[in-house]
Amino acid sequence: MLEKTQLLKKRYGLVTDINITEDLELPSNLLIDVLRMINEALINVIRHADTDKAQVDVYIKKEKLIVKIINNGIPFPEKYQQRHDHYGLIGIRERAKAHGGDLKIWSTPEVGTIVLIEIPLGGKSNV
């Protein structure tokens, strides 16, 4: 994740603050999908948010893996959040659902955009 965000900073100027629970361990298939979802969300920040800063938080809360990608850029219009021609969001949503999870998006001019991915961990706080 750190390597990817450094590459995005070098290539596009996106500075990403990353906060990941230190002892977090995930099965490899989930880890790969989480990294891909984060990457797609950050690419969306670069393409659409008109900001050079993002924040990624990854932690466990109530037996769920929580992944938050936050930016303070241009809000993401609600009418686009459910469209079927936005393949990045479709991919994020499908990857989350493949693990029994969900994708939620909040976006306002005051806050910016929060992409929230929640994935149940089957009763284990660290898999």
Rank of each mutant, 00 (worst) to 15 (best):
G88E: 05
M37C: 03
D33M: 04
Y80I: 15
I69L: 09
L121R: 12
H48Q: 08
V115R: 00
H99R: 01
Q81D: 09
L26A: 05
D33T: 06
P109F: 05
M37V: 00
K62R: 15
K9D: 12
L8Q: 15
H84E: 15
A98I: 05
L35T: 02
K68H: 09
S125V: 07
R93F: 01
N44G: 10
E40G: 06
D52A: 04
Y59V: 15
L42A: 05
K97S: 01
E110L: 09
Q55R: 06
H84S: 15
N126P: 07
K53F: 09
N29C: 05
K104F: 06
L35I: 04
E118R: 00
V127R: 14
L89A: 01
P120K: 06
I69H: 03
I32G: 13
H84V: 14
V56Y: 05
G88P: 02
A98C: 05
R11F: 09
D17V: 09
I70C: 07
D102A: 08
G88F: 01
I18V: 13
R93H: 08
Q55K: 14
K53W: 06
E22D: 14
P27S: 06
A49V: 01
H86E: 12
L42M: 06
M1P: 12
K79A: 13
V34A: 07
R11Y: 11
T16M: 05
I43F: 09
L35M: 10
L14I: 08
G91I: 01
D23W: 08
T21G: 15
A98E: 10
D33Y: 00
K64T: 09
